[in-house]
Design a binder for these strands. Structure first.
Lengths: 336, 336
DNA sequence: ATCAATAACGAAATCGTTTTAGTTAGTGTC
DNA sequence: GACACTAACTAAAACGATTTCGTTATTGAT
């Protein structure tokens, strides 16, 4: 590998001058600067990041913590899209992205230790169990951290506005005349709680008495669980006219159940999802859902994180809420 | 940050001794070694990767090149699963994974230059256009490289065995009595060519005359294209009894078309996909498809790459073929 | 001519490791 | 007691950049 020393020798100057020329310091002549830059290019010089990082403490490397337990991480459309958008934004600003090692390697380091070890300048955390001691250590640490869909006091976070999203979805459903609305919600998390809150509020707004037997719980993306619970809902003496699924993917389970009972969507029963992933719009009928703005969530996370790194003193908006968008598919029937 | 110097001072020894103790060199006393390791731990010492890399030229960082043009990268189930598996394997061996920057940042470096700059020790390449000059530069470079689903002479690659996979699928379809088989194949690539080869071979094996009007082309994962082509196939005077889609996801388009013509799967027409992603098994009816072994593909890619890095002299198997597995769903009807 | 200011460059220290080549002290042998 | 060995440690030179503090030469003002 050709180093600054080589370039310096070639140009007959010192390494200091080469460094300054390449970094556009003011105290190097216009002539020399051009010559040095040109020979560096010609010789195929590439700066050595390790050496630079050693001096400057800057690695221009961001970490992304993202646990994929049982296929629900990288192969999870919602989070994958967020990551993709995060990546694009960060790269445009000159940062690279490294996965935070989570399969606890031989050295047995914690997330935090691993981030320090790897020299990551900031971390975005998404799609993990935020309540493990290890996760908490990282969130509370001195490293710049941005969390996605989870709010920790005093730390910046970017989240989908589930309160508003579910409100819009519910108002649409109620506006279509539905009064018997079932909600198969996801496992407990701030996301789930926000959506539940809106679910009950809108019911109240419309003067609808909430019914316990209409509210069930399944894991996100669990098609089998949602399928099973749908059967239960369909077997109710007074069955709902609309079923809200935890998310678009699990809605597939709901759809299976409905179809195998010989019912049609939306003629016999309405079904809605949440997320707005591509899948939801290629189903027949097109699913009514709330599209979460993953582009913006990813982009804002990156911007926030980088700003945190580059101007540590700045007080930042601590909680960024990104609104979703109601997608009126064809899976909700107008009643009455 | 606490460095070796701090640990050395605390223990009253030299940095050299600390380094040797921590790296288990033989010429440091058992007593001292234990003491040093213990104080290092107690003081929260973490090795500085940049400094180490500067000396040893080892970063324990692998690159993954993976272009996500128009949502077909990270949000692509097949490749996402491969990456996930690659990641797990590599991390278990002490390596971290960094995305190779592909959105050409301000410095305007090529893939290769970026890899060198970032100090990546090896690269796995998947899901990109292998025929760009930039990609070729990287593939032909002196960096350890493993390609997925693409074979370049003399360089190691890991690929799904599409020849065998399509053969099994076709033999199953023919075995079910189908003779009028349409194939909507993907855009040209070695994967597509392998599958086409098997498609025609099995037709020949069964003495079936290939019919041009049954062979169409759509982009992978393009539901709309597949939907449109399905209409064309259904409108044929002598329409096929079975349609092979480019992949599971695009099969959704095919299914839409079939359903909106009022036809049923598999009673009126059989439909099969390829990939075996989760989606395919939660559809109604469950899709007949070929499950590609993403776990193995990812794992072998990582093993191959790391072996290439750690024992550069070793001559390795240059092309690793990973067999898939026929998944007999419910979407192919038995004829006759 | 003198002095201060500036422009353009270089020497050398530094970042935190690794590693080579010693050095020192202790042990065993004859 | 002299010798060779070994065990256990250290000093110091890298690695490739950045950056501080000089140094020198030139310019402009007086």
């Amino acid at each position: 590998m050709v180093s600054m020393k080589d370039v310096a020798k070639e140009c007959g100057v010192s390494v200091a001058t080469v460094s300054k020329a390449l970094n556009d310091y003011s105290d190097v002549g216009e002539e020399k600067r051009r010559e040095i830059k040109e020979t560096a290019r010609r010789m195929g010089y590439l700066p050595n990041l390790s050496a630079r990082a050693l001096k400057t403490k800057r690695t221009y490397n961001l970490g992304i913590l993202f646990v994929d337990e049982a296929q629900s991480g990288l192969t999870h459309d919602y989070f994958s899209s967020i990551i993709e958008s995060f990546k694009v934004t960060a790269e445009a600003k000159g940062y690279d992205i490294t996965f935070v090692n989570c399969s606890t390697p031989r050295h047995g380091r914690s997330y935090y230790e691993h981030c320090r070890y790897r020299g990551l300048e900031g971390i975005v955390i998404a799609c993990i169990d935020f309540y493990t001691p290890e996760a908490q250590e990282l969130i509370r640490s001195d490293l710049p951290v941005v969390t996605v869909d989870y709010v920790f006091d005093g730390r910046p976070s970017v989240a989908s506005d589930n309160v508003r999203g579910m409100r819009e979805l519910m108002e649409y459903i109620c506006g279509m005349g539905h009064r018997k609305i079932a909600y198969i919600h996801g496992l407990d998390s701030s996301t789930t709680r926000d959506r539940l809150t809106s679910f009950y509020r809108v019911l109240a707004d419309y003067g609808i008495e909430p019914r316990d037997e209409y509210v069930r719980q399944a894991a996100y993306r669990d098609t089998e669980g949602t399928e099973r619970l749908t059967y239960e809902l369909l077997d109710l003496p007074d069955r709902p006219t609309c079923i809200i699924c935890p998310d678009d993917f699990s809605a597939l389970g709901c759809i299976r159940a409905v179809q195998s009972r010989g019912l049609r969507i939306p003629e016999d029963i309405s079904v809605v999802g949440y997320d707005g992933i591509t899948l939801s719009q290629v189903l027949e009928p097109r699913l009514t859902t709330v599209r979460q703005d993953t582009r913006t969530i990813g982009r804002r996370s990156a911007e926030e994180l980088i700003s945190l790194i580059e101007n540590p003193r700045t007080t930042l908006a601590e909680k960024i809420l990104v609104p979703g968008e109601l997608v009126r598919g064809e899976s909700v029937r107008k009643l009455g």
